[in-house]
Design a protein around this nucleic acid. Sequence first.
DNA 1: CCTAGTATGCTTGTATTCAAGTGGCAAATG
DNA 2: CATTTGCCACTTGAATACAAGCATACTAGG
Lengths: 235, 235
Amino acid sequence: MALTDGEGLVSVAFALDRRQPVSEQVYEVLRQAIIRVQLPPGTPISENSLCRQFKVSRTPVRAAILRLSEEGLVDVYPQQGSFVSAIKLSDVRDSHFVRRSLELALLREVAGRWTPAMSREMRDVIATQADDIRRGDVDAFHRDDERFHQLLAVYAERAGVWGTILAAKTRLTRFIRFSGNAKRLPVVITEHEAIVDALDRGDADAADDALTLHLDRIFVLFEQRPERDRAYFTN
Amino acid sequence: MALTDGEGLVSVAFALDRRQPVSEQVYEVLRQAIIRVQLPPGTPISENSLCRQFKVSRTPVRAAILRLSEEGLVDVYPQQGSFVSAIKLSDVRDSHFVRRSLELALLREVAGRWTPAMSREMRDVIATQADDIRRGDVDAFHRDDERFHQLLAVYAERAGVWGTILAAKTRLTRFIRFSGNAKRLPVVITEHEAIVDALDRGDADAADDALTLHLDRIFVLFEQRPERDRAYFTN
DNA sequence: CCTAGTATGCTTGTATTCAAGTGGCAAATG
DNA sequence: CATTTGCCACTTGAATACAAGCATACTAGG
């Protein structure tokens, strides 16, 4: 939860468990805050400020920021400061290309080895997502959404590919959460169902189309993006 | 160049420029040494040992190791040590899948906008690679090889995709350099030429096949891998 | 001889201190 | 009044010091 405080800027409140790696916890908190746009692009990430908030030294904070900078979520300017990176539209476009290419390739392999057990498991996830919407738990919805797409990699017996997809999806998620409309979440349910339906029918081409349609839905956000947020984007 | 020394293990000799970021230089040296298999899988990466060799403190060394661990090149075990990661065959397989899926997708886009200028530039790179072989400069060959494949992303106007491909290619390169045979390098030349030839003819399908053949050549290494190196691999 | 316990040296994780560069602001100078 | 100069607060980078856990070797006791 983002809230302004005496630090003068946006802070992230969190109590961490000192028995577990500190840098890991700081990293996770910051990463989630950035993806959920609680820390909007351009927000200064002062190491000292974070040290005071988390009650830890700079070392683990620096480690966390270093990881975030490699992930492209934070820009570090020596002797000037670190800031939540702007959302580069070209990055969003390229990340979408990566994700779509990989998921379609996975889907082609999954279609050839589709089983009723897979169908059940996927429909289970979809049902959970529907419940997430009813409960209004957006974070849980996105977590289960990742689970759905991850299953594609698992079923294709290429679980390692998911890491690459997730990295791309992370960059996309920030854009979607920023521009997205909660009313659109139910559409995801029907699109997921369309994919599983096609797979159940053994129609690989239809599944291909359904997944493409599902993933390309992000493009409508390119149009709807409000002008007032221009400052948060580049390119 | 890897060489044993008083540290008791394998060391990396290098003189670094203190006017530039130290951690960056340490990272680059270590990364190259690991990819070129000068530091084989399982090699202990002692922070203190590296500090003595580079004549720097632990802080930048730790930063470098942290980056390498995220790249999957180093495994860090708290209170035990850090080691060059084993080459996981499932990782190689998945990385190959990522690379092939993305490069083929890029090629499909490039084929539709192919120009004589692109053809010239690519043939230029190929010529340079042939020269690298004549000079016996394997490192330069691989550097130019990356350039060739990077051009696909550039021509498709999705330069950002290259970063993802490169990450996958890095994992593959370590495997190839370990198992590879220098005699096979000239084959790369003819395969690259076949791709450009097909593009020049405007035959997208042939280009597709040529690139697939080129990338799938790595699978012959799966068979030829000598038994004595088993210890360096897992899965 | 074998086993249990302990001591020691190694490792990484965290904290703290020092160093160097940047940008803004205010005062001095033309 | 405009410009420059020096100071100061702030940033990250690097160096050093401290803490805590693990593995090995050694020792004492059976």
